[in-house]
């Protein structure tokens, strides 16, 4: 449903950040992008979200060319590494940010999905890292995007929590049946929850691997 065709990206022509990226993502699939620091993982997500413009190539979503569509019209959600919750809004207002009103039943449904119903009235600074992350997921899902992008969603969590949270996230994403791309540089994260893993090396796709054995 999401296809990246011959995507390249650079700030100046002498220094390519991403080169010849080709990728087909199927409905409901969870793709992990694995690569070392500086290999262009975040940049790739930014291109898909429309936060940066591709230099060369095309992005299609449900067969429609969205290469020149601005970010807010793409219908692609994103979860940032630092979660980027709005500090001046309560949890429920954060979750309802993309909706007409935070009283919309979707807000409650999403909070329930991430098990955060009782935190509605709190402000982000009153939440722990894992709680913030669940709110960020709820907020993105409430906008009902076609694709969800996650930039190192577990990097702010310590080892114990990390394991627990990533199972939870996988469950939430499966329940919501949403197509997602997750960036990580932790190989365990990738093998644990992804359907396919894209190995990124110096701005190019090195190889793509199916994950089967670890499922169930």
């Amino acid at each position: 449903m999401l296809s990246l065709k011959n995507i390249s990206f650079y700030y100046n022509k002498n220094q390519m950040i991403l080169q010849d990226i080709n990728l087909e993502v199927k409905q409901g699939e969870l793709i992990a992008i694995l690569g070392s620091s500086g290999s262009g993982k975040s940049t790739l997500l930014n291109l898909v979200a429309g936060l940066e413009k591709v230099s060369v190539g095309q992005i299609l979503l449900d067969q429609k060319d969205i290469t020149d569509v601005v970010c807010e019209k793409r219908n692609i959600g994103m979860i940032f590494q630092d979660y980027a919750l709005f500090p001046h809004l309560t949890v429920e207002k954060n979750v309802g940010f993309a909706l007409k009103s935070y009283k919309d039943p979707i807000v409650d449904a999403m909070l329930k999905l991430v098990k955060m119903e009782s935190f509605k009235k709190r402000y982000p600074y009153e939440l722990s890292g894992g709680e913030k992350q669940r709110v960020a997921i709820a907020r993105s899902l409430a906008a009902q995007p076609k694709v969800l992008l996650l930039d190192e969603p577990f990097s702010n969590l310590d080892a114990d929590l990390r394991y627990k949270v990533r199972k939870e996230v996988k469950e939430i994403l499966t329940q919501a049946n949403i197509t997602s791309i997750m960036v990580t540089h932790d190989i365990d994260d990738a093998y644990d929850i992804a359907d396919r893993i894209v190995f990124l090396k110096q701005g190019r796709i090195d190889r793509i691997e199916e994950v089967k054995a670890t499922k169930l």
Binding site: L51, E72, F80, A84, F86, F97, S140
Partner: peptide, 27 residues
């Protein structure tokens, strides 16, 4: 201000002027 807040707002379907009034201004 964390620049990701403005970008988050865009991924939540808010136009530049909506972001201005809902994020820039209150913060």
């Amino acid at each position: 201000i964390n620049p990701n807040l403005f970008r988050a707002s865009a991924t939540l379907k808010q136009s530049t002027s909506q972001t201005f009034w809902r994020v820039d201004f209150p913060l």
